[in-house]
Design a protein around this nucleic acid. Structure first.
Lengths: 231, 231
DNA sequence: CGAAAATTTGAAAAGCCTCAAATTCTGTGG
DNA sequence: CCACAGAATTTGAGGCTTTTCAAATTTTCG
């Protein structure tokens, strides 16, 4: 799919393939943006750096995901391969010129960014309102669901390291590690080496997901009155 | 601006004005989306709810901001006025039909969502990697900058409550309150009643912004090798 | 002016980070 | 194919930040 799903004009674009070795950067935060990328295989991590050297991972990308889908002169985060990655690249200018000629495709891109935005909001929610166990539980469930939507397969691949998970969820790798063993002891998961687990008890994880920290329940928030749009 | 900045077709849309009283909802999470909104005046808070009743504010909107700029059957968060708000509303279908006929405008919308995405990533970074003082400091600086970009005015309006700030930054209102008094004692700010402050020492706040929690500095992250796009 | 809501302050508890060290895993060269 | 070195992960103990619970104080608005 990916390319095939593109609008009529997209086929004419000058896509170039590229293979990136694990640990290599595809681009750095601040670099001028030259290309838009489409992942064909492998896994990429996106992250931003603070001025003091700390790193926050803002997402992982895999097959059929766009990377750097923005119309902006420079990259706003860094992209690094965490496995061997195959990419397709199109020059930005050409990409958006073509998109402008194809409203359907443009709308599709709009929706792709909209989904990214939704996922970012979800990450905010996970980090801000769940405790460490809740964060990791929802992360594992999300990964499983994304890899195989309505599948009952229990095996889930975890291409990233513990430290990557920590940098994504706003925890330390020690905490992530500790919680893995807690989940193991409770029989929720079974760890298969470094890069995979078996989800044995999804409902157990789902229950943990509801654990929260922070502000006590805020009344007045939902279902009072509704200010309908103009009559 | 707003409407004027819209593409050629936008003027023909059936905008309807609407006034919403403070504390009223514009729409609720899960409601079918019927309109796209443009704020003319006042302040709106956007938030999502967890299954257990906790609330996470994901953003504040003010004049000239779009609300619910998504092409999706239902609303993914709730929107509530935190002051008297004046809105303009267009039916979604009509809005996107017009946008499809105007590639320039569609691209503009794409960029607006892109900015929202960038801001969401920034919020993730703030919540995950800064301590409470750092979070509040960057919040205050961001609010000041957004209200009056390159201005030196020291007064900053804070239309939201302490609890809203807490729900935005993933803290409790007690913690936010405590940090306000800390900043006050240090001479960084001066509190003007409930809904405004004076920024006396911006650099002091900026310094606090760098305070972080979490994973120790991650080596190997930036500026090693670069996997350039296809030659 | 009075009641309800929002904010502030205090004291104690909990959770997560920090530092340190043991253990397991991975890839490489012999 | 095995041994080894370096990296990643796990485990432990202690400390610190922020939440939690409780109560005082201030503000808002009818």
């Amino acid at each position: 799919m990916g390319l095939d799903a593109a609008g009529e004009h997209l086929g004419a674009l000058t896509w170039t393939s590229r293979k990136v070795a694990s640990r290599q950067h595809i681009f750095h935060q601040g670099d001028p943006q030259r290309y838009v990328y489409l992942v064909k295989s492998g896994f990429v991590r996106l992250y931003t750096l603070l001025s003091n050297g700390r790193c926050q991972i803002i997402g992982f990308k895999s097959a059929d995901d766009y990377v750097a889908l923005q119309y902006y002169p420079e990259h706003r985060f860094s992209a690094q391969a965490i496995s061997t990655v195959e990419l397709q690249c199109v020059p930005v200018a050409e990409f958006y010129a073509a998109a402008s000629r194809d409203p359907q495709f443009m709308l599709k891109l709009f929706n792709v960014v909209g989904e990214d935005l939704f996922r970012a909001h979800d990450l905010v929610l996970t980090i801000a309102k769940r405790d460490a166990e809740g964060s990791l539980a929802s992360f594992l469930l999300a990964i499983a669901d994304r890899a195989a939507p309505n599948s009952k397969t229990e095996f889930v691949a975890l291409p990233m390291r513990r430290g990557d998970i920590a940098d994504y969820l706003g925890l330390t790798n020690e905490t992530v590690s500790r919680i893995f063993t807690i989940f193991k002891k409770r029989g929720f998961i079974e760890v298969r080496g470094r890069h995979g687990i078996r989800l044995i008890n999804r409902n157990g994880l789902r229950a943990v997901t509801d654990r929260t920290v922070g502000l006590r329940k805020n009344s007045e928030l939902d279902r009072p009155e509704l200010a309908g749009p103009a009559v």
